[in-house]
């Protein structure tokens, strides 16, 4: 397995991160070394081993469905990069031809 700058560019697109050509070329060999080193996990991951996604198993944590104090609109908007009339203002979601 060798990860090319093009592979990294594809992954960066999936992860929504804009990377320059220089970054792609710098990252590709580093990521390749990391992935090669972590691939050893497949050696001991036999079919009969149960996967663990969480250190301490807790399932179905419920609470009463009731109204509780929460942020005011002003608090919720307090970190917004751009706001307008009590709402988040965001760049256009749909292009003209969509």
């Amino acid at each position: 397995m060798a990860l090319s700058p093009d592979d990294v560019a594809r992954l960066a697109r999936l992860a929504r991160i804009d990377l320059s050509q220089a970054e792609l070329e710098h990252l590709a060999p580093q990521l390749d070394v990391i992935l090669e080193s972590v691939a050893e996990v497949s050696k001991v991951a036999a079919d009969d081993v149960k996967p663990t996604s969480h250190a301490i198993e807790i399932a179905n944590v419920f609470r009463e469905d009731e109204v509780r104090p929460s942020f005011t609109a002003q608090q919720a908007l307090s970190g917004a990069p751009v706001k307008e009339s009590g709402r988040f203002r965001v760049p256009q979601i749909l292009q003209e031809d969509e």
Binding site: A39, V44, A46, T52
Partner: peptide, 15 residues
């Protein structure tokens, strides 16, 4: 499966 799935199994083995 090869990466994340295997890693979760290793987590079980370490436990």
């Amino acid at each position: 499966d090869a990466y994340y799935g295997s890693a979760l199994k290793v987590r079980t083995l370490i436990q």
